[in-house]
Computed example of a mutant assay.
Amino acid sequence: MPRWMKSLLSLPLLYAACLHAEPVQKVISDWQITCNNLNYCVARNIPGDNGLVMTISRHAGANARSLIRIDYGNRYSGELPGGPLKDNLLLDQKRLRLDLKHWQSDAHHLSTAHNISMDEFLAQVMDADNIQLLYNQGATISLHGMKPVLELMDEVQGRQNSMSAWVKRGDRPAYDVPPEPKVPLVLTQPHPPKALSRDEVSGLIDYGTWRINTDECSLDPQRRQVSVSPLTDEKALLLISCEMGAYNVIDLAFEVTREQPYVGKGISLKLPFTLPGQGEKDLELVNAEYDAANGVLLTFSKDRGLGDCGVATRWQFNGQQFELAEYAREGTCDAWHSSDDWPTLWTSIRSNEPQTTVTMEADK
């Protein structure tokens, strides 16, 4: 019996049934690692604003699908001039030699998902100082921090001292690792709510503007934006702008009856995990948008105007409350990627979707 299974059986059954992976996001020297609730981990060198970035990702479990890629340029920089990477990379000032048989090579992109090729590459670079672009000395991948980041990835996925570990490899069989945690399901409403009438919209906006309790809001009532959407056939969702900054608007959310006399109740969003390094589970609604037809609430918090770092979340209304469907965070503001590619700390599937959708999203 695998060791991870023996340890699980030693736990109380109730506790074992509630186990879920706690997300991780951490910076070690010049590298950042993020592992989500499925123990899928992605790491890259930072900052990426010099244009050259190596990304290493790996799924949990014995299958251990992995990917290593090196990219020069992105959607912010556009296509950059210069020769192909395969011929122009230096490792500590000497030509980096790659057996490209199992690598995919484009002009400014190199990638491999071949296990032996990845092992050979990591053995070359693990204890080196940097990878540099021959024709642009400013485009450098610092390797300081890569080794401890990969060691942490092994630890999160339970690979220490196993044959599948990238650091501190041992004799334990590659299959003797914990499986990928179960994907959480988020339920949807049985049917979309009926649309709000013109009178309902008018009455609810007036209620949200002047009569609901927003005493803690810094914005003057005349400057507040109020949006209203059908939540159920009996209740509506009010989003009221409460505070405004350079890039973000913080909203308050209320569940309000659709008929007078209006009765409102505040809605708070609580994460199913503790934010790394913050110890909090409550989430502010920042730049919130609600899609009533699908019961999806989105938030998007930008750390700066470019929108290359911050937090993006997706919540699903199940007819009773909002459940977290996805949480993505990029803590490094280095113009490397937009919110579409931020690393995820939490992912899920809708109850009516096949499980393979999560696998596809995690490979981005």
Rank of each mutant, 00 (worst) to 15 (best):
Q321A: 15
D199L: 13
N36H: 11
Y247I: 00
R198C: 00
K182G: 11
L269N: 04
S241T: 14
I56A: 09
L185G: 01
A325K: 07
V228N: 02
K182V: 15
L96Q: 05
K364E: 13
S202W: 05
N130W: 12
W342C: 03
C41I: 07
T299N: 08
F322G: 04
A165I: 03
S29R: 12
G78W: 06
R211K: 14
Y135R: 12
K26C: 04
L219V: 00
N45P: 08
G48F: 06
T344I: 03
W315C: 07
T357L: 11
D215T: 14
L219C: 01
D92R: 06
S229M: 05
M146K: 07
Q316K: 07
T299K: 07
N136M: 10
H337G: 05
V228F: 03
P184R: 01
Q189Y: 01
E361C: 00
R95T: 14
T214S: 11
L185Y: 05
E243R: 08
N74K: 08
D129L: 07
W4E: 04
W103Q: 11
S7R: 12
G82S: 10
N50Q: 12
I250Y: 07
C333H: 01
C217E: 05
V177H: 01
L187G: 00
G331T: 13
D176W: 02
P276M: 05
W210V: 01
D206C: 01
L67A: 11
Q278K: 15
G277Q: 04
P84I: 10
F121K: 03
A174T: 04
T357R: 10
P148M: 13
E284P: 06
N287G: 09
P23H: 06
Q222M: 09
E326Q: 12
A139L: 05
L271A: 13
R350L: 15
Q320G: 01
D363M: 14
Q189R: 15
V311L: 11
L152E: 13
H191Y: 13
N115M: 14
P221H: 09
E280A: 13
W210N: 15
T332C: 02
L231Q: 07
G245K: 05
R258G: 07
E259W: 00
P181Q: 08
E22R: 06
Q157Y: 04
L269G: 08
P47F: 10
A43N: 04
T344V: 07
N213W: 07
R223Y: 15
E234S: 14
K302R: 15
G245T: 14
N63H: 09
I212D: 06
S351G: 13
S301W: 09
H337Q: 14
D340W: 02
M153Y: 03
V186P: 06
A328Y: 00
Q321D: 14
T257P: 02
V201L: 12
L52C: 11
N36R: 08
N318G: 04
W342K: 02
L185W: 05
S77F: 14
G295K: 01
D49I: 00
T332K: 04
E284A: 15
L324A: 08
C309W: 02
S111T: 08
G319A: 07
D233V: 05
L275Q: 14
H102Q: 13
V42Q: 10
A60H: 01
Y247H: 12
G310T: 08
N318R: 02
S351A: 15
